[in-house]
Design a protein around this nucleic acid. Structure first.
Length: 736
RNA sequence: GCGGGCGUGGUGGAACUGGUAGACGCGCCAGACUCAAAAUCUGGUUCCCUCAAGGAGUGUCGGUUCGAUUCCGACCGCCCGCACCA
């Protein structure tokens, strides 16, 4: 339909057992290598899709497909140990210099590495409490210890304390309902417990439950230093806790330096901190860390925001997890000879929950270890697993092993990957993890899956609603010249909404089939490439498409109506006058379009081709051979973007071979280089005239030519120039 | 709030590492062809000024520079990402 060229011999479907049997093999290999683990954890449960989701698949607290608010559930699930690769994934980002900076930043933030100290407080109830801090230097400014509402200790305490229980419930409600966390008030609840300061047995800090402490980061507990952390400061002000500055900025007086409404987070020297006094922040961090490590109550830790990738899905499609649960032997991998574990032939979607879990026959099996009765794992793998290694499978789709190592080393990494920004921390992160794991298992030798990454924009269209508020398809709407619209075939007014990303739900879609029917495949291809840079969203409009269609007709006419063309392959001798100008334009276009296409600047390439067509059309005094050269260049350069037009024109020009089998045109550097050029002359930075001089003319010549121009003389009004700046082949600026 | 990006005619967008702002397309205006229309072709199209000459002009205000859409600072607006990350 679109005239795409695809190698169908490499086609496969990830839902095909022939594909996912290899994925199951990979899973087992990962399992044996320790890259997979089964753990009970608080996981994201999508109540609409009835499945758990990975952290990356929860957007603003909602499932990425269902858009339903996710719930937290404690479940035993399978995880890929992506966190073990966190540092390597972070370091690898530095090598991806052909990725958008935006995507690299997003991955960096998602991995969220922070260095700090993990240490324990002794509590008044005899327990110890682990906290994590990136600012152990501020320990003598501590005024409280805070627990997350979801912390196990909080849950313990809440069992005996109804008020705390209520407080926790309240925190959780705000946690998801309140969109603007910035305005959410800091709230706390005093547990009555105290924590002993690690460097002063007499110093007791109150232990509170605070709504701003997250269970998902660090240990779910912190010590609060109000002077040097904004959140702690707001909390301390509200509950009238001490605010003691311990880091004093350079030049400030330690005695008078006070914190008002802004915590001080900059550099400085320690004060009010006993043995730390006078040290700088880094020295103080080291000192505290070393002392607590020496006592065995602390450890320097690198903490990540990244969590292990939860891959179990309670869905009856995709790739079954090749594991068996045996009452005697525990969790046992399926034997490799028994792969693939396929889905049942018939699936009862009417059941509540996961159909595989309710299938009476499918889930019963025998234990690969003891041969006794056992149950299959009824979950399937996240479909993102399918796409995390398919690029490696494409290198050899018929390999017996999941991956043909030599083939991946030959083909990969992918030179130029193209996709949407929405994969920044999903597919693009998962694939990078897979490549690392696969490399450790000897499946491939590459370091990164995608050397070049390009995020393209979306196709957008206006939205339309009828009087009852129902969405209308563009083809159901007639636009009128005054900008309003009516429903086609009626007189009913239609409300025109903003142009947004095409989506089925908003009905603002123009099916490619319709466009292809009306204008042809080349028109839509050309239009999508022509107007905007590819990373930007494009508005579909009929008028733009008509313009493209006109261009196609024009190129076709230029070719078919050209007369006196010599046969293909005619060589061109020395030319001058209009012929030379035409040849120059042709070779400049070849150079420019080639460069633009290589840098994915399709809209500029298109503009160059419009110009070339204009020049050919205007140049009626050219000889046949020169005209042929120009037309052939035009057709070949248009080829990648409008293949159908190019092939038709190429044939009309008398060629037997197809454009796709014809080498890309080469430009003659001699001809792209102009003999004379027109450069602007400025006086005091304002353009006053221009002068045409020989290319690469020496400065003296250009200067004299410039000063002799009328516009320059007029602007100078008799004054002598103080200085004349000549930039060769660019500009002359006369300073008066 | 933090991070990233962006802001150019009626419009989509050009302008390479500071060097003629507005390429090219769309739209609009005028003309040619036509009985007329469509199609096609030619010319024009940032604003002010009758022409010429000139002046202003790339979100706003400053700065650096012979010269700034481009570099720097502050502000305004829009988009995207992250979001109480200890």
């Amino acid at each position: 339909l679109m005239g795409l060229s695809l190698d169908w011999s490499r086609e496969f479907a990830t839902c095909d057992p022939d594909y996912y049997k290899h994925q199951q093999k990979l899973f087992l290999d990962f399992y044996k290598a320790g890259f997979v683990h089964r753990s009970e954890a608080d996981v994201n449960w999508d109540p609409v899709d009835m499945t758990v989701l990975a952290n990356e698949q929860v957007i603003d607290g909602r499932g990425w497909r269902s858009n339903a608010p996710v719930e937290r559930r404690k479940l035993s699930q399978w995880f890929f140990g992506i966190t073990a690769f966190a540092d390597d994934l972070l370091a690898g980002l530095e090598t991806l210099d052909r990725w958008p900076e935006k995507v690299r930043v997003m991955q960096r933030n998602w991995i969220g590495r922070s260095e700090g100290l993990r240490f324990a407080f002794d509590l008044s109830n005899g327990e110890t409490l682990d906290v994590f801090s990136t600012r152990p230097d501020t320990l003598f400014g501590a005024s409280f210890v805070a627990l997350s509402p979801d912390h196990p200790l909080t849950e313990d305490l809440a069992k005996k304390d109804a008020t705390l229980q209520e407080f926790v419930v309240q925190c959780r409600r705000i946690g998801t309902a309140e969109a603007d966390i910035e305005t959410a008030e800091k709230m706390g609840y005093d547990t009555g417990l105290t924590a002993t300061h690690p460097f002063d047995a007499e110093w007791k800090l109150p232990v509170v439950v605070a709504n701003f402490v997250l269970m998902g980061y660090g240990t779910g507990a912190i010590f609060g230093c109000p002077a040097h952390d904004q959140r702690d400061l707001e909390f301390a002000r509200k509950y009238r806790l001490p605010v003691l500055p311990v880091v004093i900025p350079e030049g400030a007086d330690p005695k008078s330096f006070a914190i008002e409404s802004e915590a001080y987070v900059g550099p400085g020297r320690l004060a009010n901190s006993r043995f730390l006094d006078g040290l700088d922040v880094d020295q103080a961090k080291n000192e505290v860390s070393s002392r607590l490590e020496a006592r065995g109550v602390g450890k320097r830790t690198i903490n990540y925001r990244l969590r292990d990738w939860l891959v179990s899905r309670q869905r009856p499609w995709g790739c079954p997890i090749p594991m068996v649960h045996c009452a005697k032997c525990g969790v046992v991998p399926v034997a490799e000879k028994d792969l693939p574990v396929t889905l049942p032939d018939t699936i009862d979607f009417a059941v509540h929950g996961n159909p595989l879990d309710h299938d009476p026959l499918w889930k019963h099996t025998t234990c690969p270890s003891c041969g006794g009765e056992a149950m299959r794992d009824t979950d399937t793998l996240d479909t993102f697993v399918d796409s995390s290694w398919y690029f490696a499978r494409f290198c050899d789709t018929h390999a017996k092993e999941p991956i043909n190592r030599d083939a991946t080393n030959y083909w990969l990494p992918v030179d130029q990957y193209i996709g949407g920004i929405e994969h920044a921390i999903l597919h693009l992160l998962y694939s990078r993890f897979f490549v690392r794991a696969m490399k450790k298992l000897g499946y491939t030798n590459i370091d990164e899956p995608f050397a070049g990454m390009f995020t393209q924009g979306m196709l957008c269209h206006e939205t339309y609603k009828d009087q009852d508020g129902n969405w209308l398809l563009p083809e159901e709407v007639d636009k009128r010249s005054d900008g309003t619209a009516i429903r086609r075939g009626t007189n009913q007014a239609v409300t025109i909404g903003p142009s947004i990303k095409m989506s089925k739900s908003k009905k603002n879609v123009v099916a490619p089939e319709v466009i292809v029917d009306v204008y042809g495949a080349d028109t839509i291809r050309w239009f999508m490439l022509s107007d905007s840079p590819p990373e930007r969203d494009v508005d579909w409009s009929e008028s733009g498409a008509e313009g493209c269609w006109r261009f196609i007709q024009r190129v076709h006419r230029l070719v078919t109506e050209a007369s006196d063309l010599p046969p293909p392959g005619t060589t061109i001798g020395k030319v001058n006058g209009p012929d030379l100008e035409m040849r120059r334009a042709t070779h400049r276009a070849i150079a420019a379009v080639t460069d633009d296409l290589e840098h994915l600047r399709f809209n500029r390439a298109v503009a160059q081709l419009y110009s070339l067509a204009n020049t050919i059309q205007a140049a009626d005094a050219t000889s046949g051979a020169v005209r042929r050269e120009a037309l052939e260049a035009l057709v070949l350069l248009v080829g990648p973007m409008m293949p159908h037009l190019a092939e038709t024109c190429w044939e009309a020009l008398g060629h037997k071979a197809m454009v796709v089998a014809t080498p890309w045109p080469k430009f003659d550097a001699e001809l792209t280089h102009a003999e004379s050029i027109t450069i602007a002359i400025q006086v005091n930075g304002k353009r006053r005239d221009e002068v045409t001089v020989a290319a690469d003319a020496d400065e003296e010549t250009v200067r004299n030519a410039a000063l002799a121009r009328d516009g320059v003389i007029r602007a100078l009004a008799g004054k002598a120039p103080k200085k004349v700046i000549v930039v060769p082949n660019r500009i002359v600026n006369v300073v008066a």
